[in-house]
Write a protein that binds this DNA or RNA. Structure first.
Lengths: 338, 338
DNA sequence: TTGTACGCGTTATCAG
DNA sequence: CTGATAACGCGTACAA
């Protein structure tokens, strides 16, 4: 079917190696022959056969990304910016959605290894030993873009969840003696655990006992936020403030308040996490921790590119910046406005 | 580094061909030898080298997806379900984000062709001749998952935008003599054009002149919806109903109303398009055209799988179902409720 | 500066 | 049922 190097070589009247040199911009080839080859390439509409090249070089220009549930708007931004960053260096993205399931993750890792990916980014909520062992065994440069990971040899990019949660806690303690928490799943979410740690730190610092009934569990979705708010209000009739570990849950909670005649922020202040796009357009607009999905994506991919180029990576744990953005869903006070 | 077929063959004491047969589940191999080979594979942790296989067979088990701006929640669902559908048949997804730019699309198509993809899905807003020609020239099974495309030889899956817009128009004419339209971009959006056609049909059917001032342009984003609403109200002081061509713009418009003391649905009814997840949780919740991103993804990928398997495709233009869902943002009437 | 020849790891053909 | 051998298309020593 389509032309190969041999065809080009014949048409240009040179050898295979010469064509190869032209294609790979070798400088040991004369202007003249290079020109001849190039016109032959154009004429035949020659396209390089990547699989042959990969077989030979073991370089695929393919990066695998395994993501946990890409229907999350925040992660979407992340994925998109990863792709944009990769394509700059001519890497394509193979994307697999694990939905956070370990089994799926392992399955994909295996598959991607066979496809000869040059590098891998894993966006997951949980670092099981099995996953980590798998990553080590495949011997492919890998970056974790999600929760903080302790193992010193693994490279990871993440928001500083602990610090961010502490910031929110500090802010909320301005309004009331305690605040309700809509946390993420107990199972399989480091992000949620880390944010809890920040909360716990501040409860302790403020000498307030963190009671179980202040905490309600969601799964980061709108629906779960609605239900979690319901639970919180049932258990705490005097609740004045809520910290939700995702914007989606916060929006669900706001909707619950609306349905039950609870005024925001007059009766209750709510702060979310993520700063997804719609957070500025809800009514009331949502106070939240802004963490840039784009920044997460760019930093992760840049790190991976470095690893793949064998450049030295001075710091294998990077943090993405975050900032508490106060909008209408929480009472204003002398803090950052946006 | 890692073991290859030769190593397995040696260890098992058989020939290369036999190993190959075992790997490919050929039935012309005895139980005994198959077992020997399998244990050898396990022992060596042998993994097939896909690039060699692709070089030989020209089958990559890779599907390219070129998408236009995956920060859109609706398209995200589409992408995710495409991936889920593909993986069932052991196809991996290479994803490239074109942002709707023709140049990017062409660039990706070229790149993906070199990576030997077996099939391609293009999610785009515009079908330029250049794009169509390119798609034809690459000789790879391709499905368009987006606006309707006339060319009889091209296969496409899409919502019936015309019909959906007609449904909304019918509904809105119940409330007032005319309705404002927040349309998508004039440039490069078939979806938007098609929805306009539906609107025009119904204006004509109702003998109402569709004035320019009823129409405002957005780019499907929250912000643009806000601005478009502003423009509509400035030009039409008696505006009672709005049809927004995306939920995101509708939510922007709702926010504008809130900021300007316009009550929804008492003063103005608003209907969106897409039924993104948050539409059920805004205040007021959003009446909208529910079109399933998941269904779009599944149908497109299923079609592509058929094409790749050379199965006959009886109908190369498929529609995804849609349904008008009435929520709080529009006055209720005797129509479907959800 | 250019060409020759080999090998990367598979699958397919053919003979046994 | 099994094995030998020739491709697939490219990059790279080595030779010229």
């Amino acid at each position: 079917m389509s032309a190969n190097m041999k065809d080009v070589a014949d048409l240009a009247g040179v050898s295979l190696s010469t064509v190869s040199r032209v294609i790979n911009d070798s400088n040991l080839v004369s202007k003249d022959t290079a020109y001849k080859v190039k016109t032959a390439i154009k004429k035949l509409d020659y396209q390089i056969n990547e699989s042959a090249r990969v077989l030979r070089t073991n370089i695929s220009k393919l990066v695998g990304i395994i993501g946990a549930g890409m229907d999350n708007p925040f992660l979407m931004k992340t994925l998109k910016s990863m792709e944009a960053e990769a394509i700059k260096e001519n890497y394509n993205i193979i994307y697999g959605d694990s939905d956070g399931e370990l089994e799926q993750e392992l399955y994909y890792i295996n598959m991607l290894k066979q496809k000869k990916i040059d590098g891998l980014i894993i966006i997951t909520a949980k670092f099981s030993d099995e996953l980590i062992e798998m990553v080590r065994s495949i011997q492919i440069p890998t970056v974790f873009a999600s929760g903080y990971i302790k193992n010193p040899d693994l490279v990871a990019v993440t928001v500083n969840n602990v610090k961010a949660a502490e910031d929110v806690s500090d802010y909320l303690f301005n309004f009331s003696d305690y605040f309700g928490i809509i946390r993420g799943p107990y199972k399989d979410s480091v992000a949620s655990e880390e944010r809890m740690i920040g909360v716990i730190n501040k409860y302790r610092e403020n000498n307030v006992k963190l009671k179980d009934k202040y905490i309600s569990e969601g799964d980061f979705s709108y629906e779960s936020g609605y239900r979690a708010a319901q639970e919180l209000f049932k258990k705490n009739s005097d609740l004045k403030t809520i910290f939700s570990f995702s914007d989606q849950m916060a929006i669900g909670a706001i909707r619950y308040c609306y349905d039950n005649n609870i005024k925001i922020p007059e009766d209750v202040s709510i702060v979310g996490f993520d700063d997804i796009e719609v957070a500025r357009f809800t009514k009331p607009s949502l106070s939240t921790v802004s963490q840039s999905g784009a920044e997460l994506g760019v930093k992760s991919m840049k790190l991976l590119l470095k690893l793949m180029n064998n450049e030295s990576v001075t710091n294998n744990k990077e943090f993405v910046s975050h900032k508490l953005v106060i909008r209408e869903s929480s009472k204003s006070i002398n803090i950052i406005k946006s």
